[in-house]
């Protein structure tokens, strides 16, 4: 139990997707102008991530790993299909995003309109594919994968909502012209990343 709690805290704070690995920076910078849309995107990302990372784990474990196909036929036990991981992972993610898009369009048209182009762009949100690839690289088991995906998704949500809150206040401040918009967003993210560095080394 402690191990999982530790992993969760690590994924949310210590190795935050945005501040430590810069995963998902594109949508993070583009959608963080208003808290409402930012939190909508954050929730969508958590949802897609918790859906796809364990799914990709299952694909990896029972289809791709060296010897994983042994359950089909013993003669396939030596087959190693890990080189197909990228294509299968991204297909799973693209499919899941399509699903989320349909659900959101049906149940919350206002959220659908405000998210606009960024809903399909969750597919290319690096943090989602990144979570699956980290899962593969670090060889997590199923429950670890689940905890890790929840943590990474929550970390993204936290980062984008914090950033949106700061940017809403920023509208009233006097920033030099060339630095407005993207420039200051980068520097603020840097400062926030420095703040998050102080979490490093925390063990529960």
């Amino acid at each position: 139990m402690e191990h999982y709690l530790n992993m969760l805290v690590k994924a949310i704070f210590v190795e935050n997707a945005i501040f430590a690995f810069f995963l998902g920076m594109c949508s993070y910078l583009a959608v963080s102008k208003k808290i409402k849309t930012a939190s909508g995107l954050g929730i969508a990302v958590i949802f897609v991530m918790v859906l796809t990372t364990p799914l990709n784990y299952v694909i990896l474990e029972y289809l791709l790993r060296p010897g994983a196909l042994g359950w089909v036929h013993p003669s396939l036990a030596t087959v190693d299909l890990t080189f197909l991981a990228f294509i299968l992972f991204i297909s799973t993610i693209a499919g899941a995003v399509q699903l989320v898009e349909m659900v959101v369009e049906k149940f919350s048209p206002s959220l659908y309109n405000s998210l606009g182009i960024f809903l399909p762009l969750i597919t290319v949100n690096c943090s989602i594919l990144g979570a699956s690839l980290f899962m593969q690289e670090r060889e997590y088991n199923f429950s670890e994968t689940l905890v890790f995906s929840i943590g990474t998704g929550t970390g993204f949500f936290l980062a984008i909502v914090l950033m949106a809150a700061i940017r809403e206040r920023l509208r009233y401040s006097n920033i030099p012209n060339p630095l407005q918009g993207l420039g200051i967003a980068m520097i603020i993210t840097g400062l926030m990343a420095m703040a998050f560095l102080s979490f490093s080394g925390i063990q529960l």
């Binding site: 980068m186 520097i187 993210t189």
Partner: peptide
């Protein structure tokens, strides 16, 4: 450390603009 990459790109953008 990661934050420095953000600062450097921020400054690059500042100079370019």
């Amino acid at each position: 450390l990661p934050p420095m990459a953000l600062f450097l790109i921020g400054i690059y953008i500042w100079i370019q603009r």
